[in-house]
Design a protein around this nucleic acid. Sequence first.
DNA 1: ACGCCAACCGGACCGTGGTCCATTTTCTTC
DNA 2: GAAGAAAATGGACCACGGTCCGGTTGGCGT
Lengths: 220, 220
Amino acid sequence: MTPIAPPDDEQGHPGQTAEQTAGQPLLPLAGQTPPIRADAARNRTRLLEAAARLVAERGPEQLTMEAVAAAASVGKGTVFRRFGDRGGLLMALLDHSERLYQESFLTGPPPLGPGAPPVRRLEEFGIATLRHLAAHRALLLAAEPEACRRFEPPPRRLALTHLTALLREAGTGGDAELLAHTLAGHLDVALLHHLTERRGMPLERLEAGWLDLVARITRT
Amino acid sequence: MTPIAPPDDEQGHPGQTAEQTAGQPLLPLAGQTPPIRADAARNRTRLLEAAARLVAERGPEQLTMEAVAAAASVGKGTVFRRFGDRGGLLMALLDHSERLYQESFLTGPPPLGPGAPPVRRLEEFGIATLRHLAAHRALLLAAEPEACRRFEPPPRRLALTHLTALLREAGTGGDAELLAHTLAGHLDVALLHHLTERRGMPLERLEAGWLDLVARITRT
DNA sequence: ACGCCAACCGGACCGTGGTCCATTTTCTTC
DNA sequence: GAAGAAAATGGACCACGGTCCGGTTGGCGT
């Protein structure tokens, strides 16, 4: 299991209220951070230590906010004030690894970092990301507990098998099952909602994107 | 807004316990269905009617299990026994549309149904699915409330912009932002977990799949 | 050294999803 | 139509995430 992050209370840190509200906590974020008060900082590290201990003992999915608060001898409200929500706390736990990972492809040496040809960097980025995810899978999954269920509902499974069958029938090479997942990823309510509402894309653009994607993927 | 499904209590229906446990409720499922008891069937339709009314009045995301139970003059336990969980209830609400949608590509006329060349069917399937999703977005999203947050966390956003930038730099044509989402979909913890644990794929296969995907997508 | 005020604290409180089990209702068989 | 077994019921119960607010405390200006 991953040794979690050292509670490296890298001093200042975000602060203000929830650790990831509006400002990006895990991004380089050069922006000035309203300094945190001394007692708050102390509680923050106590909370992170307690959380890390509990995660190590009982696994991330068993972690409850109340338990963390209790283990750190701190009020529940404090936990929420500091980390916003359960996900925020879990993420804070792997803040350290996350930074390393981000630096590796933002400013690290090629071929992952700048300097290599873009396609090469794409390849490396995927590999690095997959390994990063695998390494912290437990924590990351615990941060969005519903995530696993996304593939269970029968409609999704049906779409998947349908896509797989069509891909096979089309005689496209490659890993049909994997490619089916890729295609299915494009046909996801959450994605649709995000792109149309948050990003303002019209449905037509998604449809055009789908046709293009099918073309690229089935191209022998 | 979608008129929901008529509470077409198509008699028998699943039954047993939770409506979607193990057996696929929305799939053709020719399997024999242990017949439901009369009182259970009556309560089922009352619950669906109540739920549909509440959804129409206050929107799907406001729907609480207790409210449905109360509105149907039924115990809360009954709701859960029948529909398993919140998601099950929401899904049952669009069971009707779901069936139509499924039939359209499983046994309907070409080019969506069997008979057309596979690539053509792929194209049509995507379009049909996107429209199906758009039509029932509210209900589908309400069924997995965390879904929207999947794109908010800064790490995800960073990965997305990074992918977009690399794609643009690579001079690949097409909709870079959309293609970036496709690529990002392949680098998802939940997917990784599903494929490695549930489907037994080794990490190497995912890595190979990534390289293949990048190749297909950046292929001019 | 002092006092002000914003930031912080704690834990009572709430809403909701989900479970449990003693009791009631339906179906079947004779 | 009676009786026994299986299925269904309902609402008290629990756990957990998240909010709220009266009281406290640390940082800063004077």
